[in-house]
Design a protein around this nucleic acid. Sequence first.
DNA 1: CCACTTAATGACAGCGCTATCAGAGAGCGT
DNA 2: ACGCTCTCTGATAGCGCTGTCATTAAGTGG
Lengths: 352, 352
Amino acid sequence: MRTPRDRGVPGAGGTSTINDVARLAGVSIKTVSRVMNNEPNVRPETRDKVQEAATLLHYRPNLLARSLAGSRSFLIGLFYDNPNAAYITDMQRGVITRAREQGYHLLIEPQDSHAPDLVSKISSLLATIRLDGVILTPPLCDMAVVLHAIEAAGVPYVRVSPFLNPGRSPCVRMDETQAAYEMTRHLISMGHKDIGFIRGHPEHGGSHQRYEGFVRALRESQIEPRPEWVKQGYFSYESGVEAGRALFAEKTRPTAVFSSNDYMAFGVMASAQQVGIRIPEDVSITGFDDVPGAMLVWPHVTTIRQPVEALAYAAADILLTRQESEEGEPAPQAPDRLLPFALIERQSVRRL
Amino acid sequence: MRTPRDRGVPGAGGTSTINDVARLAGVSIKTVSRVMNNEPNVRPETRDKVQEAATLLHYRPNLLARSLAGSRSFLIGLFYDNPNAAYITDMQRGVITRAREQGYHLLIEPQDSHAPDLVSKISSLLATIRLDGVILTPPLCDMAVVLHAIEAAGVPYVRVSPFLNPGRSPCVRMDETQAAYEMTRHLISMGHKDIGFIRGHPEHGGSHQRYEGFVRALRESQIEPRPEWVKQGYFSYESGVEAGRALFAEKTRPTAVFSSNDYMAFGVMASAQQVGIRIPEDVSITGFDDVPGAMLVWPHVTTIRQPVEALAYAAADILLTRQESEEGEPAPQAPDRLLPFALIERQSVRRL
DNA sequence: CCACTTAATGACAGCGCTATCAGAGAGCGT
DNA sequence: ACGCTCTCTGATAGCGCTGTCATTAAGTGG
């Protein structure tokens, strides 16, 4: 009778252990370990001998055993609560790309940020699996209780595009204010002076920054934003429709509308269509985010592309680079990494 | 000087071990282990005593140690190579939902199905981390070399919507032929007799099944499909535009067009718009997949919704349920699990 | 009351690695 | 030749659990 852990005939498809390699190479398992971890103080010929044996036996160090014995788990966690599928997969791709360079793996942990037991779930998770680092995306990265739980567990973490608590941890983000500023400059350079704005969800950090960049660009050109042309939205298509409807019901109407994100821009376009306003002949439209669906609506909307995958890569890089060097000292207090965005010009803006 | 593994003052935020619990409860660690794993043969009062101690110490079993000592890793892997973000996140959500019910975690492994070293990457991964199961999605689930590598590693796996090698492993899928059949029946019931069809990528299994369902429904109503109204597409928006253009250039034109997926349907709609054909007044359109962008184009397209999350849940369920019961015996040869799809009626089909 | 099963518990040996430290050589100045 | 450092290597003790098996306590039948 074979027990569940019986690996069968050694070498015949079964996994080989560090012992097998040590025996074949005629050295101790510690030396094999040294070679596998690229530690110094191994004679080149010894190293070769070990490597040859390892190759011959198709030896792969067991990650679980390494984790248990050592101080690393080779696992990094990505925590998120974001309904946007494209954002999530881009994040995952970026993190995994960097993680693989170092033999790390990714554990994904979608979390309901409204769950009452969110913190206990996270604490419990971190106690169960010792992650070498976690990456937090909005809105989780702005929840103090979450940060506290992760800090309490002593796990290094990096936040992506945080709004609150600057400096509390390493962060990666793009300069949203600057992006909105440049988008507004773009509209102005196309001859627009009367520009409307659809604000995003007030609880989302980016909303304020985007508005701020908009206003700054306007004022810089001696244009005063008109309150009746600034409408509140909530980042959803429907809120865009509503905001557009309200905006186009005003006595005078702007020649361009800058929506805080693409979905609202689509909503604005739909509301325009309904009252016979043509885009971009009558009104120019710009969005923000460059969602994949952008290519589905006509005209394609001019927008800002956030470097999501690059942000993710950078976040993982901070985690893994620190892993490499540091061994207990307080981190060298890395400043936020700011990544470049791109203004994508398409057909929704007309030159006046 | 603190070593990296120094956990600091016991109990003070530090993780507690099974030893701490055993000591506090006044039992052996083995008994604690039994309680934590819900094993039988523990007196209720003992169980309570242990549970109390565990709660008091915020004890969480270390997953890594459990994996190494035991026969389970509490990790399941999701392998995919699919550009569709919504599909992937739905899959992940479904798998995670089921996994969490059993304290399992998800490791995601995007793979490039065209990479020359795909197999060695997979073998190496499976040797490094002992996964308790893996879930394969198209196109990976149809690659014999991949199946072989996983079988060689002795890891149980479930395939989602496979096309080839039926019966080689447990599978979950929806009945694509039936869905296409019902969609066609729907068009016929709306009074359409002249129906065009845009085929999908010939290397994707679903393409053939969808076409088959289409033809079956037609023939059942004594309608012979007209070859000049069947165009080849490749599941992309652009291929839809092209197919639509070719279709509308025919001498006579169908009253409805069934596209093998939504993106191509959008393309067909765009090509119709360009030559002044109105949807659905002049031509009705149906899609397949219900991609999220479907709500962005007007009119909203009638389509088939694939139960992606439910498929993922079912796949994980097969893996985890087997885990529970079986201990080495050959699986009871579960037949494929067929999950129900939904026909979503929207505004792109007109009753004749 | 005794052999005889069954339930409840514990002792202990690993799982496959890493960390620590001791030891064996090699090189070198005095 | 001696101690001394420095480089390379191995013996050994865990990491925090689970699996196996032995052991004790409790029940059962004759």
